[in-house]
Design a protein around this nucleic acid. Sequence first.
DNA 1: CGTATACTTTTCTAGACAGCATGTC
DNA 2: CTAGAAAAGTATACG
Length: 681
Amino acid sequence: MVAELCAIKHVLEGRGKALYLVPLKALASEKYEEFKILEDLGIRVALSTGDFDTVDPSLARYDLIIATNEKADSIIRHRPQWIEQVSLIVADEVHLLGEASRGPTLEALLTTLMITNPKAQFLALSATIKNAAEIAEWLGASLVTSEWRPVPLKEGVCFRDSVIFKDGSVIRVDGPDKDPVTLLTVDVIKSGGQMLIFTGSRLSAVSLARRLSEPVRRLLKRRDERRLLELSSTILRLGERTRISEMLSRAVSHGVAFHHAGLTYEQRKAVEEAFRSFLIKCICATPTLAAGVNLPARRVLIYEYRRFEPGYGQTNIPVLEEKQMAGRAGRPRYDKEGEAILLARSESERDFLLEEYVLSEPEKIWSKLGVASSLRSHVLATITTGLARSEEDLFDFFSRTFFAHQYGLHSFKKKVAECLEMLTKETLVECQGRHLIPTRFGMRVAELYIDPVSAVIIRDALRLRRSGLPPISYLTLICHTPDMPKLYIRKREMEPLVSFLESNSDLFLFDLPDEDDPEYESLLEEVKTALLLKDWIEESPEDSIVERFDVGSGDIYSFVESARWLIHSAHELAKLFGFTESITPLRNLYLRIENGVKEELLPLVSLRGVGRVRARALYSAGFKTLEDLRAASPLDLIKVPQIGPETARLIKEQVGGTVSKEEWSLMRSKKTSKQLSIDEY
DNA sequence: CGTATACTTTTCTAGACAGCATGTC
DNA sequence: CTAGAAAAGTATACG
């Protein structure tokens, strides 16, 4: 509300545009829906995330622009004029600054905006921050704190059948069951509330949901039971049937659901919506639901406060994260208070949890901009945007960052200089005397929004100028870049991966580490990820990919998305450097990744208006090449399922066939008439 | 020799942002 | 912040 009022003031008083920054796409959409009512006041609201548009020049027409941090950063790299008119910058969930992977982007973005828009107002928001004053100081802002909450929150710890709250009050839950999780769940549902349980792994989310299914089902009203059965079958129809969707469907029929990133977007949305409409009584979730969309419940149970972290083992989650989860407790308008409960397994653990979480404040936020991988790309961006034209400019810029604010500039200078050295050595930047000038390569890398290291890996590989390579060569290449997320390797998978590697070593576009090299294991991860992508473009059924790689459908989509982005980037770099023999293979691979199709469908899928489904339909109707399509009459084309008059016309336009006047008018008349069956056509 | 039981070894582990182009049945 | 639970495998006891 504070941000909203502030934005209204800025726009209506004609002071300038407002930019609203959020960390998640889902949050961006949510805010967009929320702020759209401002259009009644004549304020034009736009949404800009990676899902919706590129750097859209029409954004200049809007007054309030909602964007993810990364999207806003990317927009700035394309240097549009309208940025100058921004007079209010809202940074929602600003505690993200302390997150290693994505905090630096927000930090660089805010620093840039402070420099380019020195008169703008900065409004940073967070519910869980200890050193808020320090961040305010960095932003040149004043700190405003408020303890107000729409629904009061009670935090406590549960051991056996009793819960001790922060304020000293104690509640006891009892029932025939001895299991405290079941007791707490049944208790809150009986009194008309809902339960949200956070677990530390996907597996425990799923198994907990199964465990609670029976007790929850017994509490269901007849009417809900019927609607849940409908929802249960809807979930199976949302996508290809997999083991996970079957388990989810079964749980949902009992009024329970699990929620993690292995689910598809649609499945997750379905679960969230059913929870909001009180249909689903209990969700067992990984931290997916801790941040992000607003999905409160009367009672929140933190079932596991430890989580595995690679390189560290089992670690206690930060208090900040625990407070984020606890903050989900209490549904405005429905609950008069919310309860957030940590689960203890022993008496000493109960005391530990009370002390370390319930009564603790969240940790301080520390800048993570010093991490080399993120620093590189921000040093480059500072140069390509023209913000730094010399080394001094560069240090000036970085002296304005939160990192410099917290740690001082001294140690930082060396890190920045190292990044600069790497960028000049790899010719992303040129030094001419004191001047720093981005090369075309550097410019393109900044715009493509990839890590300079990824770009160098791709360039060096394509520079081998090898032609006639199969898709797996390019797939392993992009999986070799730091921008590509990777699959875990299981012990039993080592063997087949090693043998694949040995028999195909001539297909790799980069040097392979030795078997005793610590890099070797990450190479296997890369190969495994590449093999998943290969299955995808060969149209393996989703369920077979799920089984073979032990991933969820949601994981498949996120791997495919990242691969699509990097293949596109590789294609652009091939064009930039004139690596002609790679341009067409990369273009084809892009089409196949995007649509998830076999090679035989390539010519069809390359047409506008034809994706996976229509390509398949055309192919099985006998139209296998562009030549077949050129020879075909449009009236034959519309006999193909999935192909209507519009698409037929579009296809004909692209393959350069002729459409006679009669055919044309016939098609147009069909277009406006009620849709006919294939037989009628 | 088969099987129950105790002890040892192995396996496995959260999430999600970015480019660009296009628009049906 | 540097693990711990569950599954799988193996040894031993017992009838």
